[in-house]
């Protein structure tokens, strides 16, 4: 980063050699690149500036400032630098320089689905523990991720190390928790309070997403694959039962509440049959309707499901 009075700070073009495009985000492309000085492989996330005459996109700013706080944790992707450069049209672009990770949880699950294999239970346990640990770290620093999904969980398949990435929708939360936009989060992992229009929400939205990811690791299929907000709610209600004031006080006062078809709750084992009893207990605590009753990430780490896991290197 440019320092006052500093001479030549290398631009992204001078400092890195792009190797290949590995993805595309909301604000630009992601490249695998080599740092010329060290030969180290990094991920370059390119962000266009002055796109709508508003300078650096707020999502990029939020991601950078949050990662400046969180990047010390082994389960949050490390932001190494921020570089400025110019594209072919001479427009200013910003490059976020991240440590490079080989794959993500979405690809990891897909590889098992394609070969017809199941993800080993101890691997699921290890990945879930790391996810809970990373989320607990974010929450402990007052950061909600708001967009947890397999695609945003980077992995090293050799070491089975998992890291939380893509904090473009994350935000620091304050007390009391104020009105937040509910136009966030990929539908399949979206908590029911968000779908029902709650604008006051907190860490529990991330825990719901973690629960959905847990089930998906076991079954290799999305737990609630809705294609609209209504369909998403109906998927949830079919499995967990249609909520009411008894199980979730205040639900009928939420903005998007209507009279929904009445379903009785099913046992979670019908949706996730191969998960053991302790796993089902943890999952049920992550998928509680009432947000305040949902287990915290910190408490989840202490759950008996993780008792037989060797946590020394996690």
């Amino acid at each position: 980063m440019e320092k006052p009075g500093g001479g030549g700070v290398l631009s992204a073009k001078e400092a890195f050699e792009k190797l290949e495009k590995v993805g595309e985000g909301t604000y630009g492309k992601v490249y695998r690149a080599r740092e010329k000085a060290t030969g180290k492989i990094v991920a370059l996330k390119k962000t266009r500036l002055h796109e709508d005459e508003e300078g650096v996109p707020p999502t990029t700013l939020r991601e950078v400032s949050i990662l400046r706080m969180l990047s010390r944790d082994p389960h949050v992707v490390r932001l190494m630098d921020v570089k400025q450069g110019q594209n072919k049209e001479g427009k200013t672009v910003l490059y976020l320089v991240f440590e490079y990770m080989d794959t993500d949880l979405k690809k990891f699950i897909r590889s098992f689905r394609q070969t017809g294999q199941t993800v080993p239970p101890q691997t699921i346990k290890s990945l879930m523990y790391q996810l809970c640990k990373g989320v607990a770290f974010c929450h402990g620093h007052g950061i909600l991720h708001r967009d947890l999904k397999p695609h945003n969980l980077l992995m090293d398949p050799k070491t089975m190390m998992l890291k939380i990435a893509d904090l473009g929708l994350a935000r620091a939360f304050t007390v009391p928790i104020k009105k937040y936009t509910h136009e966030i989060l990929t539908l399949w992992y979206r908590a029911p309070e968000v779908l029902l229009g709650a604008t006051h929400y907190s860490m529990a939205v991330d825990i719901w997403s973690v629960g959905c990811i847990f089930a998906e690791l076991v079954t290799k299929q999305a737990l609630f694959p809705g294609d609209s907000e209504l369909q998403q709610l109906l998927h949830i209600f079919r499995l967990l039962g249609t909520p009411n004031e008894d199980v979730w006080p205040g639900v009928s006062k939420l903005m998007n509440w209507h009279e929904y078809p009445q379903w009785n709750p099913q046992s979670l084992s019908t949706a996730v049959p191969s998960l053991d009893e302790l796993g089902l207990d943890l999952l049920s605590q992550m998928l509680k309707y009432e947000p305040s009753k949902r287990i915290s990430a910190k408490k989840a780490m202490e759950h008996a499901y993780f008792d037989d896991l060797d946590k020394r290197h996690l």
């Binding site: 980063m1 440019e2 300078g55 950078v64 400032s65 949050i66 400046r68 706080m69 921020v82 400025q84």
Partner: peptide, 14 residues
């Protein structure tokens, strides 16, 4: 001036 401000703050914006 936006970028020079962010760089001078070292992107520590929280």
């Amino acid at each position: 001036n936006e970028m020079i401000v962010y760089q001078s703050l070292e992107f520590d914006l929280i």
